[in-house]
Structures are given as C-alpha cells and as structure tokens.
Design a protein around this nucleic acid. Structure first.
Lengths: 222, 222
DNA sequence: CTCCTATATTATCAAATTATTAAGCCTACT
DNA sequence: AGTAGGCTTAATAATTTGATAATATAGGAG
C-alpha cells in the first residue's frame, strides 16, 4: 500500500511545522498551504487523501474552502478534517454539515491528531482494496485492473489469480497454494487450468508481470 | 432506506431519555440498552445503523462492547459513536482505534449530538440528497432521475437500486449486497429479480450506466 | 546434445451466469 | 369493482466463463 497523502492548511507556520513533523514521523506524505485559495490549488495537483483545514484563515476561511473542495469531482473521495480554536458549538455543527469528516479542537494534541487522522483514513476505506504500482493498479472494489491508463476487465478467476499473486510481489506461490486460494479446497481442477489462466492474463495485460518458477509455481514481479 | 435505526446504550436512564427524545423528534427510530451485554443482544435483533455507546458502563464497558460489535458480521456496516465524560486524551484515542466512528463529549449538547449523528450516518451510507454527474442527476428527495434534461420517474425498487449503485461509482456491488440493501435481509427474492430491474433501468435511461460484472455483481459507471 | 518433464498454447465444449420476454399477482387509486 | 402500475417469477435465449484435451515448446539433468 502506498502512503497516504495529507494536505495541511493553516496560516500559522508553527502549526504546519509541528503537524508536518508528526505526520512524517508516522509515514505520511505531506504537503502544506497557508490559506484557502492556495489549498484548493495544491489539492488539485497533490490529490491528497485527506485535507486538514484550519477554519480561521485569511483569503478564504476553512468552511468556504471545504465547500469548494466538495464541488471538485476529483476530490470527491478526499476526507476533510477541521482544525478549530472555537469552542463554539455552532461552528462545529457548521463544519460537519458542510461536508467535513471530523474536527480537531485547538490546542492540538499530537497523539489525538494522529489517531483521528488514522481513524478518518481507515473510514475512507478501500486503501487496502487497492494494489498500486507505477503503471498498474488492481482495484478489488471495482474489480478492475488498469495498466498504463487502460482499464482492463478480467473475468473472475483471472482477476482473483492475478490479485493473489500481486498481493505479495516477488513471493512464489506454489501451484497447490494457488489452487487452494483461488479455487478452494473442495473443487478439484487440473494443473493445466492454472497455466491457461496465467496465459490469458499475460495476453490481456500485454506485459509479463507473472513469472514462471518452473517446478514450483508463479510469482508476480513488477 | 427507511428511517435510520439508532441504538442508544447508557446506564443512566436520564441520558437515554433525553437522547431518545431528541432523536425521535428528528424522525429516527430508536432502541435502548443499559449496559454492554444488553447492547450486543439488542444490536443483533434490532440491526441499527448507528450505535451510540457510553464508555463507562457496568457489565461491559463501551470499548469492549465496540470491539465485540466489530466482530459481528451482520453489524460490520454499523457505525459506532462513543459518549464519553472523560476529557482524557487517551480514552479518545482508544475509542477511535477500536473501530468507533466518532465520539461525543459529555455533557451532551443536543444540537451537536444530532448533527454528529447525521454526519456519521451520511458518511456511513454515503447518501446525499442528490447525486449529480454531467448529464445525470439522481434526486433522492424527489425520487427522480434526470438524464440529459429529461426527467424520468423510476418506480421505487428501480430507483433504490440505481441510487445504490450510483452512490459509489465504479464499485462493484455483490448481488447479495444489493439484495440486502435494496430488499432488506428479511425479504427473499430470487436473483433474477435484480436482472429484471437492471434491465428496466437500462431501458428507461436508454444509456448503459450499469455495468455487469459477471459472477460478481453490478456497478455504476459514468 | 538428447531426453524427460514442466509449462505454454490453442481450440473446443460444458457449465455457469445473465438478458430478455411475458405473464401473474398484488396494491393503490379511481 | 375496475384499472394501471409495480414487483416477482418462470421460462427461454444469449453470453461469458472456466476446464480440459491435445499439441507444441522450453528448460534442465545427465
């Protein structure tokens, strides 16, 4: 799984620094912006999984920014968390109703911050459902494989076989193991069946991600 | 979907009363339990969309209860919100890491409570009033679909099925999942029923937004 | 280098799955 | 009661998928 990308937006450099530090320490990929307008620009290019947005900012406040972000199709699946110094109940409500996923009260406690970030990303789901390489994505939710931009539809067995191999790149799967995991232990099919499926996958992807390990099994290599 | 079902769990009757009152006023369907064990029992039969769980309770505390709930397959899509009197940072963290979706600090502010409930449910079911694409709009309030300007009236089942698929474009919905979400778990209808509805939708919209993933299910693609 | 075994390839058939059509039942409304 | 629309099912057609058999090819042991 690739690292989650997070965009931090706050007008106080101190806050950006401390949050960046904590996020990076936790293996997140971070970008920052210091006002709402910049946030929208950066969000479009950086395509973060999560945006942490201060509510009170010059140029464009967090609420407005969030509203705009929600209108951008490519950012539809991006989560938004507000940072707020206001203890005012109404502003919390306002934030949630505007399409935010959570909010974090200032002063920020780093542990809580990281925990909320994790919880929000987890909820966002499907991070585990995707296997991503540079030019190849296997999406278990969409049941699709895209290679160099082209979306390829593999039939069920082929997809399962490919997804299995790709789930642990480099590892060799024994034939028996493949049979067990893709076909199940009850069904009995001949060994040639695997070959045929491998062949079909290779042909459809037009690239040899699947390597034969003679006498042993197959492995995925990128 | 009908009204959202919410299970309230707290050992203080006062709290149950006030929350029930507010929820019912907002058209939610409510059940209550006064400790963790009872909560799990009731959750199994009531199948709530959301469980509001007090952390400190006799018999079984909220955290433990949440962990158990997360293990029950039929409740895997159920959201959990914690009620907590503790301002302690660690308990918040613990709650979120245990699979909860949010927490609400006591003392409870009714407006915030309802707002969080709504936000959580919205996130959960991803059901916004309108789903809009370039030339297609699905309006859950009016129960209408407009395609290229023309307004099409889909009957209930067809509408629900279409709206379900469109709620997460690209994602494949398993047949069983479709049956559960559109028909409910009690009703039993044959698999062909789904096909027939799909066919009707395709015909009425005169465009193939619904794609078949053979052996798996259907998905919406724009 | 040759044989032997494992895998690759191709074509074909059977099985599984979905599409389509039509018909019947039920409900809401007149 | 009559009617229309909506929902489900049954029956049948159309498709797609999966598995095998048969044949070709490759790779390693000796």
């Amino acid at each position: 799984m690739e690292e989650a990308k997070i965009l931090l937006v706050d007008d106080e450099q101190d806050i950006l620094d401390i949050l960046s530090f904590n996020l990076i320490k936790n293996k997140f990929s971070v970008a920052t912006a210091c006002n709402g307008e910049q946030a929208i620009e950066k969000a479009k290019e950086f395509k973060p999984d999560l945006i942490v947005l201060d509510i009170m900012m010059p140029k464009k406040n967090g609420i407005e920014t969030c509203k705009e972000i929600r209108k951008i199709p490519e950012l539809k699946d991006t989560a938004v968390i507000f940072l707020t110094a206001m203890v005012d109940e109404d502003s919390e409500i306002h934030g949630l109703d505007v399409g935010a996923d959570d909010y974090i009260p200032k002063p920020i406690k780093p542990k809580l911050f990281i925990s909320k970030v994790n919880a929000t990303l987890r909820r966002l789901t499907n991070r585990e459902a995707r296997i991503v390489f540079e030019d190849l994505e296997i999406n278990r939710v969409k049941f699709t494989v895209s290679h160099k931009g082209a979306e390829i539809n593999l039939p069920r067995k082929e997809f399962e076989l490919f997804a299995l191999l790709a789930s642990e790149p480099g590892r060799v799967f024994l034939r028996q193991e493949i049979l067990d995991k893709v076909w199940g232990t009850e069904v009995i099919v001949g060994d040639r069946t695997i070959d045929v499926h491998v062949r079909k996958i290779r042909k459809k992807l037009d690239a040899d991600f699947i390597k034969t390990v003679k006498g042993v099994g197959y492995k995925f290599e990128h």
